[in-house]
């Protein structure tokens, strides 16, 4: 349904109704901004990248054939725009080690997280996502917020479906690793104060 609506507005824009593009922007800006934010880790950078992505989409709207969903195409452009920015800035990307977890360890992580206040817990998870590498937080955001299928994520990132599954598994593990470290740091800080 959404894609049918999207196509309607795309047609309007191609016919010359520039303002129709604002509808598409309003519909997708939050997700595009979130994806860019997760990759670039700065609000200003993310806002610029999001605008840049929308502008690129607008310029090549006539080339959109509609064989994929508009959102898939938009997120692909966003992903590539952010990758370009990261490459240009040559910012050091964080490298997170992957720890192995057994069920018990995960349970203990879970209960430590539950022990935090709701607001604190939210902040902690946000911090952890920010500590992940661009690709990892991008894939998690896409999978959980947008509920994109593995196939669509593969299209967006330009990799194979199997590769997406592996990356998703590793990203989850890295998230747990970061959380473990964060919780430990928090605990040490708590005892010191």
């Amino acid at each position: 349904m959404a894609s049918l609506n999207d196509q309607h507005y795309i047609n309007l824009v191609i016919k010359g109704d520039t303002q129709a593009f604002a509808v598409l922007v309003d519909q997708y800006k939050a997700m595009v901004f979130t994806l860019a934010l997760k990759m670039l880790k700065s609000r200003e950078g993310a806002e610029e990248a999001a605008q840049d992505s929308f502008l690129k989409v607008y310029r090549s709207l006539a080339e959109f054939k509609g064989d994929a969903r508009f959102s898939t195409w938009l997120y692909k452009i966003t992903y590539n725009t952010c990758l370009d920015r990261i490459r240009k800035n040559k910012k050091e990307q964080t490298v997170v080690a992957i720890d192995e977890f057994n069920e018990q360890q995960i349970r203990s992580l879970d209960s430590s997280l539950d022990a935090l206040e709701a607001q604190e817990r939210k902040q902690m998870i946000q911090d952890c996502l920010n500590l992940l590498a661009a690709e990892d937080s991008f894939i998690l955001t896409l999978f959980y917020f947008e509920e994109q299928s593995i196939k669509d994520i593969a299209k967006i990132m330009g990799i194979k479906s199997n590769h997406v599954k592996i990356k998703l598994y590793r990203s989850r593990k890295k998230l747990a690793t970061v959380l473990k470290t964060q919780l430990q740091t928090e605990m040490i800080a708590h005892y010191e104060s």
Partner: peptide, 28 residues
């Protein structure tokens, strides 16, 4: 499985971020 469930739970706690209020206007 437990890792997946745990990640699901964690990600449920976060939400989509909104860009600044004049995002659409300045883009248009």
């Amino acid at each position: 499985k437990p890792l997946e469930k745990f990640a699901d739970k964690m990600m449920k706690e976060t939400s989509v971020e909104n860009p600044s209020a004049n995002f659409t206007a300045s883009l248009m």
